[in-house]
Design a binder for these strands. Structure first.
Length: 630
DNA sequence: CTAGGGTTAG
């Protein structure tokens, strides 16, 4: 035994082969996902002159892949080459995978092209292309793989479930949907749709492309489902705004005997936030505590968001204050919460606090900050923050920020400034930017700028009826009847129809849904009696057709049986005094109702929160038959 | 080589 070897065995007292002992430690660390520690250990290993073998590198490469460390990866690659012997398939597939995960798919391909490849290397390269969203590259390689499989030459190549799974997961944006559909066909032809993991990846693929119906079809055809399947479907519905479907699938899941985990509850919580379903949200919170997920930062943020959106700022703040580590996402949730409900000052204070606590603001949090300013009428402070965004934090404002600032200026009546801001934009304004301007024109009755805004907005979003309605209303205010009929003709030509407006209130875990003039609710009689009473009380304090002072009170009290009014009457009938009432509205809250709600709130001394759910999609998932919901 | 996760105006 050489002196070196003796010294080595003394330094680390392993049983027989020192390399095996080191490798075992690496395996342990890798299993426990302690990737940084694995790399540190490797540094120790190098210092104590050991000889890495074929089992050493895959663990280390996996660590680099997870931590996305391209430099460390290429160093390791050099070490692999230095060992002299040809790398085995496992090491090569790890190299390919690591380069791909570091977004270096060209390097990965170089490794791939060095020699003939067995199945795992093909799979690694295919999944690498998918990871970098290059599904066409992946498909080309798949074709090559099939040819080699058929030739049956010296290397063992077999298309397997992992191959298809990797291919499918590469089509996770809508632009790649066509390829995804073809690959779905491949999965069927090759007999892999029955494979659980493959089917799961198909569900996920469709969900990410925004095709929830197709995802649901795959989901329904599956004979076996595991936790991943349910989660893919639940979070898929949640991400695409189909909040009610989330709750449906969740209860189906509970019936099927699969128990939920943190990911499931996250999807459910986000659905509750979008529905304003605080009661269900509370139940889920209890479930979270019971299952011991209370510390999960994802869930805590979702919880803060849910309470904030439902108007329960006290509870949102409690949960927020009690979370230990606060990320930008946590701050965004709480800032947005105060912003939505008009507490702009608090939102800005929180933002400053966030900066002080050394959390770097991102683009998203600025959207919340700017919109908080515009909700609270803090025009100039909003503009300051907008400037700071680029100057102080180096964040390029996107169209989503410009639309907030246009809204900010627009609400303050500074329409020309808003127009100039749009003209000065470096990025192309989207529909939302012009739409915000159009909305401002409605408030300040400026038909001229409205026409300019409308021209742009119909070009960008020709099917968004909201804008047609807005312009038509602006013309109505300006007594421009010719304009009104022109817009009507446009809408008819383009076959656009307005969705019926409806409102709903969550009560005892059920959605109570109302259309305007609705007579189908079981409590209809009491509701209308209550509404009559409210109307006469309101007329007492505020005689009809009398204009009021101030911006939001310019409006008259409408006499129609609006869905919001029915929802409020229902809530007053059924809930205890002192509790807040959250009413959800699919379209913008009817202007006639603003004052009505405000006055009723004063008269009965209850707080109402009417949430504008315009941007949520759940009104599209067929809330049509009210019977299912009460 | 291997499927699921929080925040975003109008």
């Amino acid at each position: 035994m050489s002196a070196d070897q003796l010294r080595e065995s003394a330094a680390a007292p392993p049983r027989w082969n020192p390399t095996t002992a080191w490798n075992n430690q690496l395996r342990q660390l890798s299993k426990q996902r302690q990737y940084r520690e694995a790399l540190t250990l490797y540094r120790h290993m190098l210092r104590s002159s050991f000889f890495p073998n074929t089992f050493t590198f895959p663990f280390l490469l996996k660590s680099c892949a997870f931590l996305s460390l391209p430099l460390a990866a290429s160093q390791l690659h050099a070490h692999v080459i230095r060992t002299g012997s040809q790398p085995d398939p496992y090491t090569r597939s790890s190299l390919i995978n690591t380069y791909a995960k570091c977004s270096l798919h060209h390097h990965a391909r170089k490794v791939f092209d060095e020699m003939p490849n067995p199945t795992i290397c093909y799979n690694a390269m295919i999944s690498g292309y998918s990871f970098n969203s290059k599904p066409l590259h992946a498909v080309c390689l798949f074709r090559k793989m099939r040819r080699e499989e058929e030739d049956g030459l010296d290397v063992d190549v077999n298309v397997n479930a992992v191959t298809l799974l990797s291919l499918v997961s590469g089509c996770s944006v809508a632009t790649h949907l066509t390829i995804g559909v073809c690959l779905h066909g491949c999965c069927v032809r090759f007999g892999f749709v029955t494979d659980l993991a493959v089917a799961n990846s198909l569900v996920t693929m469709y969900v990410k492309c925004g095709e929830v119906e197709l995802a649901r079809k795959v989901f329904d055809e599956m004979l076996v489902r595991d936790l991943i399947t349910w989660n893919a479907m639940i979070s898929g519905y949640a991400q695409n705004g189909h909040a009610r479907c989330v709750l449906e699938v969740y209860s189906e899941m509970k019936l099927s005997g699969v128990s939920a985990d943190a990911v499931t509850l996250l999807g459910v919580m986000s659905a509750c936030a979008n529905l304003g379903a605080q009661g269900i949200g509370r139940e889920v919170e209890r479930e979270i505590e019971r299952r011991g997920f209370g510390c999960n930062p994802f869930l805590r943020n979702a919880l803060v968001n849910m309470y904030a959106r439902c108007g329960n700022l006290t509870r949102a703040r409690e949960v927020f204050d009690r979370s230990g580590e606060k990320s930008v996402v946590s701050w965004t949730a709480i800032i947005g919460g105060y912003g939505i409900h008009g507490h702009g000052e608090v939102a800005l204070e929180l933002f400053d606090e966030m900066v002080e606590s050394a959390v770097r603001p991102d683009k998203t949090v600025f959207v919340s900050v700017l919109s908080a300013c515009s909700h609270a009428g803090l025009t100039d402070r909003g503009l300051e923050y907008f400037k700071e965004m680029e100057r102080k934090y180096g964040l390029q404002p996107g169209p989503e920020h410009y639309s907030c600032v246009v809204d900010l200026l627009g609400r303050a009546g500074r329409l020309e400034e808003a127009v100039n801001l749009i003209k000065s934009m470096k990025v192309k304004p989207d529909g939302a930017v012009w739409g915000a301007l159009l909305g401002a024109c409605k408030i300040h009755k400026n038909a001229e700028i409205a026409e300019l805004a409308f021209q742009h907005v119909v070009e960008l979003e020709p099917t968004n009826i909201g804008y047609y309605v807005l312009l038509s209303n602006i013309y109505t205010d300006a007594n421009n009847l010719e304009g009104v009929s022109r817009v009507r003709v446009m809408m008819r030509e383009r076959k656009l129809r307005k969705d019926p407006g409806y409102s709903y209130v969550e009560y005892k875990g059920k959605m109570n849904l109302f259309y305007s003039g609705d007579l189908s609710h079981p409590q209809t009689k009491q509701i209308y009696r209550m509404l009559d009473e409210l109307e006469s009380l309101v007329k007492e304090v505020h005689p009809p057709n009398e204009k009021c002072q101030g911006r939001s009170e310019e409006l008259l009290i409408g006499t129609g049986v609006h869905s919001e009014k029915l929802a409020i009457a229902f809530a007053l009938l059924n809930t205890k005094s002192g509790t807040e009432i959250t009413v959800m509205k699919n379209l913008r809250v009817c202007v006639d109702c603003h004052l009505f709600i405000k006055l009723v709130s004063k008269i009965v001394n209850r707080q109402f929160i009417v949430r504008d759910a315009t941007r949520f999609h759940h009104f599209r998932d067929g809330i049509c038959s009210c019977k299912d919901y009460w």
